[in-house]
Design a protein around this nucleic acid. Structure first.
Lengths: 105, 105
DNA sequence: TCATCCTATCGTATATCTACGATGAACGAT
DNA sequence: ATCGTTCATCGTAGATATACGATAGGATGA
């Protein structure tokens, strides 16, 4: 990406709040990822294959979406023998909800 | 984008809820757009040029971000002579907050 | 050991995003 | 009418995102 220009007096317009909220919003900016989060919330915990079976996407694609959610801290994955068990990270979810609620409407 | 495959039994995994939340999250998935929303919330109403002056981005880029927010329904723009006056759309903001709050943590 | 299952990752094609300068349209003032 | 101001849009370059098949690695079971 091209780096934005810098005007005098506009350095701190974009704050850490904005970066954090945007980063979490980006993780939830794809319908499949929202669906995965909902599914994990319903199931509590879920093996990767169960998610793949239920999603209209190839295994590689689902794995990629799970990685995005994991990198954002929204889900956690734990290797369990040959499987990987996923669950929500409620801390990050609450953090996101709190940031969104902070936005003035 | 390549169209996703369709498995039997996975048609309605991704719901309208997911689409709507993802669409709004995408609009807020860039720090500059979150900053614009915050700025509009503080100012109440704002001429485009004021936003450009305060953001570390070129005029064309800010205008593009404003269009994304407008297309998502998060802000409204009203032409006022040679200027364009922007303000938040509180309905959509509240809708987004409600959708996010609905997500189980 | 060997075959099998499960998942992450690689490689890749296409699409979208993000940044900018340049241009054009609309308006107000001279 | 002409100029300057303001903003949206066009065109474009480079970065990311999204999809898939293929493959590799680790665990289990025969």
């Amino acid at each position: 990406m091209k780096l934005p220009i810098l005007k005098p007096g506009a350095q701190d317009t974009v704050t850490a709040f904005d970066e954090e909220l945007a980063s979490l919003a980006r993780a939830l900016s794809h319908p499949a990822r929202v669906a995965i989060v909902r599914h994990l919330a319903e199931r509590g915990t879920c093996v990767c294959g169960q998610i793949v079976n239920v999603m209209p996407l190839a295994q590689a694609t689902v794995s990629q979406h799970l990685k995005v959610l994991k990198d954002a801290g929204l889900v956690q994955g734990e290797v369990d023998g040959p499987r990987t068990c996923y669950c929500l990270n409620p801390e990050t979810m609450k953090r996101f909800q709190s940031l969104v609620a902070t936005l003035p409407a």
